[in-house]
Nucleic acid binder design. Structure first.
Lengths: 375, 375
DNA sequence: ATTAACCAGTTAATCGATTAACAACGGTAG
DNA sequence: CTACCGTTGTTAATCGATTAACTGGTTAAT
């Protein structure tokens, strides 16, 4: 104990388990056991080893070396389609992460957020150099190079929302019917002039008004499903899809993009009386646009969001009508599924979570009810 | 080469760099170079190696083994004082993470969020088994066992807010003067009956009204500094601190806690006319309490928050007067500092970021102006 | 003609641990 | 007295890569 004085200063050179073994006069196996299986040696010796470790400044078994030998790292990789610094601006994702965390921390696992790198040179990502036990993919387009990079790592994967992978369990919602319910709500109120504010149609989301051609070429299954849902509802109501319903693609899931989209849509000759936004973030932007344009919501314009994240954020200036989806649970299921498959346990290949249309204060019947399309 | 046909299906057993070397008929060193230093071999051979790799299903050099050999992992550890699933509920932290991400991703590094484990058995954390190149500590009490666990890893560390570590660069704000400005604002408006809604005084934050004794025993330097700031202002205004100003400690940085605190404070015989909350989250709870109690803000009760995070969240039902601090920049600086010290570059040992009192709509002069203390 | 630089790879040591198989030893039972 | 056992440690193989030093053969420069 008195020796603490001279060994107090942190030694500059790395102390290894072997050094500690030498200093204590035992084998490395015994030192390893002292840390990992206390029952395999006498309490006295173990204590002596731990004491020596402290006086030597040994930081404990090196995690990397241990990982190499043991064959696992103790951390789950999470992939987001965009830059990390944007990811945290996405409330749905943060909620999702919270769910993943809940699962991870009960298993004692850490979370590793893998940076996607800039959009242009996506390939240059840390995906194939980062040590993780498996990946959780959060809503990425199937043609995103990051996806194939992750798949090529041949680690267990769980996919959320997108893409559908043969080899990986899926956690998500029924996007088509969720979207349909949103559109039906509007249609049911009497709206006939609708507009859609869409998320990216694919990795190379270019933004702007999307014609039928581009809609057909959309690679994102999630967005396709939602468009399909909107379209089904529109068609059932006698509208012609997509001719009667303009779709504006946003390049990013940010309120600013939603605002731009809304301005574009609303400045058309026969502007929509109601807008369908594919996220609450975009819907928030629509609200800004409406305010800027002097339009009252819902008097002059009805609006349905998607996600139901604004409530969690107390963004209560306007209570948004929206499609609720359980982000937290999605994260938790995804985390649990990955952990299970790491443990070699069987995993539900397709977990669909419930959604629900939450009618709040941004939707009502159109001011001047346009005459029904037929008769 | 013809064998490519039968090796097309993903082999179940792990393919190593050595296998690939054997299959290609070159040394492991050359294969390694094919991945890491293309200039060290001919383009043709490299291509042949890569092709063979694909047909063999070789996922690229194992990150763990590479990490062991190279001596670094390519990821930054981030420590939060509470469970991960709570962490994401803390908007200040999310903003901070966003800043850290910005720094990390320009350096191509990933972020590893280390789970703290449950409050009671804190020691059982992944901190000493997780592979990272360094730690960023986000606002932890100096007596938190997690802190010493991190320090004992002997990796580069950067501290945000708390605690002050001899050995680690610090990024934060001047908590005392920031807090003072908040109290002075209230005092300047004429308030004389103040109440403080505090964050945890130490790791073992027990919550509830804190007497002078407990305030003295507070171990959290950040909270101490803020209390000091409030106290200085109060004293300068002729009040007696802490006798005249009740302090309620919240066990967690959650609106619900703030609400409970406010209810306790406001139900006292001579309730405060103004409340100082140490975070916007807590302030949000105060708003809830006021609404529940039928008190109008700011008519019946003034309120100053801390952080200025509600704005970012559009929690605009009430524009909160608060002390703004630059969470994002804090994260970015912390990230950059850690990256710099990993690179062996010198780092500013103490980076203080500016704060600013933002007077909005939750503060005004007290309804019945209490007579100025002197004349 | 001689030295130097270069090319395209290879050899072998090394990173820091874990763990199956084995050994030494004192004690106990038959 | 021998056989068997449980306890406490040790030996040595192994995890999957990286990289300094080296090799044999060219080419360019002095």
């Amino acid at each position: 104990m008195v020796e603490a004085t001279d060994s107090g200063r942190p030694s500059r050179t790395k102390v290894t388990l072997a050094d500690l073994a030498r200093a204590t006069g035992v084998s490395t196996a015994t030192v390893s056991n002292a840390y990992n299986r206390p029952e395999k040696l006498s309490a006295g010796l173990r204590q002596r080893i731990l004491d020596t470790a402290r006086s030597l400044g040994y930081p404990g078994p090196d995690p990397t070396a241990r990982g190499l030998r043991r064959g696992h790292t103790g951390t789950l990789g999470v992939l987001y389609a965009d830059r990390l610094s944007y990811a945290f601006a996405d409330p749905g994702y943060v909620l999702f992460l919270r769910g993943v965390s809940a699962a991870a921390e009960t298993a004692g696992l850490a979370l590793t957020l893998v940076p996607a790198g800039p959009r242009d040179r996506r390939s240059a990502s840390a995906i194939d150099t980062i040590a993780v036990d498996g990946f959780i993919i959060y809503s990425m387009a199937p043609d995103d190079p990051l996806v194939s990079a992750a798949v090529e790592r041949r680690l267990p994967i769980v996919v959320t929302d997108q893409p559908r992978l043969e080899t990986a369990p899926f956690v998500g919602i029924d996007d088509a019917s969720a979207a349909r319910s949103a559109a039906e709500h509007l249609l049911g109120l009497g709206h006939r002039r609708l507009g859609v504010i869409s998320l990216e149609l694919g990795v190379t989301g270019q933004g702007g008004l999307a014609d039928a051609e581009r809609l057909r070429a959309a690679t994102s299954p999630m967005v396709r499903a939602r468009l399909q849902g909107y379209g089904d509802a529109a068609t059932s109501a006698g509208l012609s899809w997509p001719r009667d319903v303009p779709v504006y693609e946003c390049a990013e899931n940010l309120p600013e993009e939603g605002e731009r989209a809304a301005r574009a849509l609303l400045s058309a000759p026969e502007p929509p009386s109601a807008l369908l936004a594919m996220s609450d973030q975009l819907a928030l932007g629509v609200l800004d646009a409406a305010a800027g344009l002097g339009l009252a919501v819902p008097d002059d314009l009805s609006l349905v969001g998607f996600d139901d994240t604004t409530w969690a954020e107390r963004a209560a200036d306007v209570a948004l009508t929206t499609v609720r989806q359980p982000h937290f649970d999605k994260g938790r299921y995804a985390g649990e599924a990955l952990i299970a498959s790491l443990a070699g346990q069987p995993v539900e290949p397709r977990q669909l979570l419930p959604t629900e249309l939450v009618a709040r204060a941004t939707t009502q019947a159109p001011r001047a009810i346009s005459p029904p399309v037929r008769g």
